[in-house]
């Protein structure tokens, strides 16, 4: 197998809360290969968002600790994002304090991550309406992405490509959508637009963090289908994060199951689909709840 595009090793994230220091990501390791879809399955609060947003350095919240390795294979070779960041916590060699509220820390993250944002990876969140600039048309936001991905394009070419992206995310009447604001579109349309803005940036890795949460059932199925279609060419890798086992099984090549900040198991999606191999009891319960073949529970 080729070297992974991204590998996370022994990621630990802790927050300082009123009840003291709380470890919310506890030694998570996983990797994604070029063009692969890794499904990250877990109930709410299991640490999926923190584990994946830390790839972008966008961990929300108050000062805490992050340690481990986030290794990315970029055009310039391998970098460890965490090692690039100066140690803020005294004494710890690998410990890095993520201090979202600390401007200085944010600026350090900014300096380190700048070359990778968008190019190496970007993200699509839940709440598609809130993920788009409310005061800018969809078209203009797409234009920004397109022209960052290819600065050589002139205005007309940028707009043509933007409209093309709207077509690729299967929005009917892309010209009208390009001229619309987020509040004029449905949640599903906004998520398609958001996916277009993210992909137009041409990232090598797309992080989709529960992109269907909050959408109607039929719209959810459409969005999941759209991801399937968009990733068919295998030009991009994706982390698909969801609490819905069916969505994950439909899209992913490999799956990790998370709970309480830990990875419980890692398996091929095919094995999971066909009830092959031994299952962690928690995974088995998820399969059972979704009326899927469990196979052999460990």
């Amino acid at each position: 197998m080729t070297a992974p595009l991204l590998s996370i090793e022994d990621l630990i994230i802790e927050f300082d809360t009123q009840q003291g220091r709380r470890r919310v990501v506890d030694g998570v390791s996983f990797s994604v290969a070029q063009g692969e879809v890794l499904g990250i399955l877990g109930e709410s609060g299991s640490g999926k968002t923190l584990s994946t947003l830390s790839i972008l350095g966008l961990v929300p919240g108050r000062p805490g600790v992050v340690s481990g390795h986030i290794r990315a294979h970029t055009d310039g070779g391998e970098v460890d994002f965490l090692a690039e960041l100066p140690s803020v916590v005294s004494g710890g060699t690998a410990e890095r304090a993520y201090q979202k509220d600390d401007r200085r820390w944010q600026r350090i993250v900014q300096r380190t991550m700048k070359p990778y944002w968008g190019q190496f990876a970007t993200a699509v969140f839940q709440n598609p309406k809130q993920s788009l600039d409310p005061l800018m048309t969809i078209g203009r936001q797409l234009d920004e992405s397109v022209s960052l991905a290819d600065p050589s394009l002139d205005r007309a070419a940028v707009r043509a490509r933007s409209v093309d992206w709207l077509r690729r995310v299967q929005l009917h009447d892309p010209v009208r959508v390009a001229a619309s604001y987020a509040h004029e579109l449905s949640g599903g349309m906004c998520q398609r637009a958001m996916i277009a803005v993210a992909l137009a940036r041409e990232p090598r890795l797309l992080i989709a963090d529960e992109p269907t949460t909050g959408l109607d059932t039929t719209v959810r199925a459409e969005i999941v289908g759209l991801f399937k279609a968009l990733l068919r060419d295998r030009r991009r890798a994706m982390l698909y994060i969801s609490h819905d086992i069916r969505e994950v099984l439909f899209l992913a090549d490999r799956v990790i199951v998370m709970r309480h900040g830990k990875v419980l198991e890692e398996t091929s999606a095919d094995d999971l689909r066909h009830g092959r191999g031994r299952r962690h009891p928690y995974t088995a319960s998820l399969l059972e709840a979704a009326d899927l073949p469990v196979g052999e529970a460990a």
Binding site: K114, T122, A123, Q130, D133, P134, V197, A198
Partner: peptide
């Protein structure tokens, strides 16, 4: 801390912009 500002950062839109 708005989602869309975070999304813009993730996409690599420049801070000045």
């Amino acid at each position: 801390s708005e989602d869309y500002i975070l999304a813009h950062i993730a996409h690599g839109f420049t801070p000045a912009r």
